[in-house]
Amino acid sequence: MTMQQHDAAAALVKMANDIADYFRSEPQRELAVEGIANHIARYWEPRMRKKILAYQAEHGGEGLNELARAAIARLAQRQGPSA
């Protein structure tokens, strides 16, 4: 990974964590995970989604908070094995 690609991944990690922080106060964890996944699906351009999924797969979600990791795993699940 080049430095530039690393920076791009860092920006996506921060964005995902920020979204997850909003949903942190949701008392039902399932709703929080679904909410984060839906938000990313609804507002992120496909290349960005692909990158965060790849980042999670390659780096084990390093730097992502727990809810964000769960939501990205949910997105990966939705997209199936080809994602």
């Binding site: 530039q4 690609q5 351009e45």
Partner: peptide
């Protein structure tokens, strides 16, 4: 049917060469 890039996403994508 998919959303496009927001302005800050455009900047990131530009620096990535995309």
């Amino acid at each position: 049917a998919e959303p496009g890039l927001r302005i800050p996403n455009m900047f990131e994508a530009a620096l990535d060469g995309e």
